[in-house]
Design a protein around this nucleic acid. Sequence first.
DNA 1: CGAATATATTGTAAATTTTACAAATAGCGT
DNA 2: ACGCTATTTGTAAAATTTACAATATATTCG
Lengths: 230, 230
Amino acid sequence: MESGFESKFKAAISVDNVVFGFDNNDLKVLLIYRGAEPYKECWALPGDLISLDQDLDESAEIVLQNLTGLDNIYMEQIHTFGRVDRHPFGRVFTVAYFALIKIEDYNVKPSSWAEEAAWFPINEVPELPFDHNEILEYAKNLLKSKIRRQPIGFELLPKYFTLTEIQNLYEAILETTFDTRNFRKKLLSMNIIIDSGKMQSDVAHRPAKLYKYITKKYLQLQQTGFTFDL
Amino acid sequence: MESGFESKFKAAISVDNVVFGFDNNDLKVLLIYRGAEPYKECWALPGDLISLDQDLDESAEIVLQNLTGLDNIYMEQIHTFGRVDRHPFGRVFTVAYFALIKIEDYNVKPSSWAEEAAWFPINEVPELPFDHNEILEYAKNLLKSKIRRQPIGFELLPKYFTLTEIQNLYEAILETTFDTRNFRKKLLSMNIIIDSGKMQSDVAHRPAKLYKYITKKYLQLQQTGFTFDL
DNA sequence: CGAATATATTGTAAATTTTACAAATAGCGT
DNA sequence: ACGCTATTTGTAAAATTTACAATATATTCG
């Protein structure tokens, strides 16, 4: 069943971006409200067909920026989904990307055909069009395994954070709980964060110390990898 | 810079398969000798443009089977490569897949436009066309990290194997050496292999015990994952 | 101002795992 | 019988992990 080249150069490629944030002890994901067909008037992952004159990785950043205003977000490729019938308009392969950002550092603004853009707690994500629920599930699992191997948790937290906050982050992502003393011992023994000298304020209880991560150590560990088991 | 759908449905998708084997203490990869343009008369990864009426994952198996005769090999997706100029005939995105097989259990036979198919020791792979060297590098790194987290080493070994063989396999893939006593202690403590009762024969030295892996435990650990650190 | 409230912070002993290290063993070939 | 070659095995010290609960500190309330 050989066929000529012509019949094969008829596919389109899209990217779908899973952008995670963390806020109020909840893991959140950024969705847009679609103002274009197909699946107009649905919440969906920010994704779009890409132009064929741009590299794939570039396209992910461009699409995200077009739809949500998020500029210069480094996106990492996670998986490509290519079921025959996944798109009603033809054969569209979609390459999923993901990113972790500090919600408070960015302002999301829908643009292009996105009518809205909003953060959804990961457990309150509605039914999504295409295979977006499957993509999100895939991304969640990847995040789970990555956070245990690389010091990526800090990408989701503000510059200064408390040990309780980072423990909550780990617990939210891994859907488990840790012993506080052991969690802190382990985390501090990695030498990737230090006491910033600052303290929490405006809280109705004993204020916590604020920590920050050590960029150098962090980058180094990102290469090496590590195992965070508790 | 909005553009219509027409201009976007002009891409082609290929799959490129990285099939690893292990033989004579060498990690090997399966290459084909291309008998078709572009890059005719070059050794390359077994890959081809896919027909647009098949699911992506299916296509990987079909392409491998067409070119090398390897039938029913489960292929896992690893990454998609999409630089604009990676293919001389147009915009082609390639999805890389990989598989681990027991060399002795299969017979590779070139077919379709593949003129030859042969195993190359990983360190003797020639310069490859397209971005195939980059893809192979990516696959090697993935294998390295996967073998430390999942019990996949057995997929490369015959049914019965010695502890020395599996240590050699780990050492070849991870490009390191292990202390024999500690390696065995660790491996055996995982309870994924057992003494088969059989012994090596026809060797000019003390014959080694032959082990086999325990399928059940193996499958279970594949889900859980583990950490193999030494 | 003292007491109640709400989290933050910290230590230690026991168990387990990891590490470093070398001598004895078992077939085969001569 | 002896030599060759690769296989097999144990242990003590060090490091890490685990289980577990009382004290500290700023705020708020009466």
